[in-house]
Simulated scan of single mutants.
Amino acid sequence: MHFFDENFWIAVSFIVFLYFAYKPIKKAIINSLDAKINEIKDKLAQTEKIKAEAKLLLEETQKEMENFEEYKQQIINKAKASTEKLIEKRTKEMEIALTRKSEEAVKLIENEKSKITQQLRDEFTETVINLVRSYLAESKNNAVSDEEIINRFIKQKN
């Protein structure tokens, strides 16, 4: 019978080998696949964690940008306000200075007017005195001396 020849025994041995080798190989393959699955899960979890951190970082950055824009606007508003205050202050100072200069000019004009008025009075008085002297010198009034008449006239003037 050729049924149990060496090919048969090789086939039987191979099947027995496969039967005994299947469990450890299966276990090794499953363990290897499980390790690979766990590694992929860990990498996926790390990726999700990094994604969440990146999302938080993006949100924080956006909030900081919004805060920066608000801060920038506040600085601009403060600068405008201080500039307006400075302009207002300088304008008031200029108005005060102009008013002071105007008042000084008016006082100077009044002083010059007073000086000229006094000078004109003095010239007029001197002219009148000279006219009276010449009149008295021509008329020669003997009852009152010429000097006395002039002195009376001067006293009345003052």
Rank of each mutant, 00 (worst) to 15 (best):
residue 93 E to C: 00
residue 108 L to R: 07
residue 27 K to R: 10
residue 91 T to A: 11
residue 93 E to T: 01
residue 37 I to D: 12
residue 53 E to Q: 08
residue 120 L to I: 07
residue 9 W to H: 15
residue 105 A to L: 07
residue 54 A to T: 06
residue 14 F to I: 02
residue 120 L to P: 02
residue 48 E to Q: 14
residue 84 E to D: 10
residue 157 K to S: 03
residue 55 K to N: 11
residue 107 K to I: 01
residue 142 N to T: 12
residue 141 N to Y: 15
residue 91 T to E: 11
residue 30 I to D: 06
residue 96 I to M: 05
residue 53 E to D: 13
residue 132 V to L: 11
residue 141 N to Q: 09
residue 5 D to H: 14
residue 120 L to S: 12
residue 67 N to F: 05
residue 55 K to L: 08
residue 17 F to K: 00
residue 58 L to T: 07
residue 68 F to N: 13
residue 44 L to V: 13
residue 157 K to L: 13
residue 68 F to V: 06
residue 92 K to P: 05
residue 83 T to C: 01
residue 106 V to H: 14
residue 113 K to H: 06
residue 43 K to W: 01
residue 33 L to A: 15
residue 17 F to H: 00
residue 51 K to P: 03
residue 35 A to F: 14
residue 120 L to C: 03
residue 90 R to A: 14
residue 7 N to D: 15
residue 60 E to A: 06
residue 121 R to F: 07
residue 137 A to N: 15
residue 61 T to F: 09
residue 92 K to N: 14
residue 31 N to S: 03
residue 22 Y to Q: 00
residue 61 T to V: 01
residue 51 K to L: 11
residue 128 V to L: 12
residue 147 E to M: 03
residue 87 I to M: 07
residue 92 K to D: 13
residue 108 L to G: 07
residue 63 K to G: 06
residue 18 L to H: 04
residue 100 R to N: 08
residue 22 Y to G: 00
residue 153 F to H: 11
residue 158 N to S: 06
residue 26 K to V: 05
residue 115 K to R: 12
residue 77 N to H: 10
residue 136 L to G: 04
residue 10 I to A: 15
residue 21 A to I: 06
residue 53 E to L: 12
residue 50 I to H: 08
residue 93 E to R: 00
residue 22 Y to T: 00
residue 33 L to N: 09
residue 107 K to Q: 08
residue 133 R to Q: 08
residue 73 Q to D: 08
residue 44 L to H: 07
residue 88 E to G: 14
residue 116 I to M: 08
residue 107 K to D: 05
residue 79 A to L: 09
residue 25 I to G: 03
residue 119 Q to H: 02
residue 12 V to D: 03
residue 59 E to M: 02
residue 8 F to S: 07
residue 41 K to V: 03
residue 60 E to V: 01
residue 9 W to F: 14
residue 31 N to M: 02
residue 154 I to A: 03
residue 36 K to G: 13
residue 68 F to A: 12
residue 79 A to M: 05
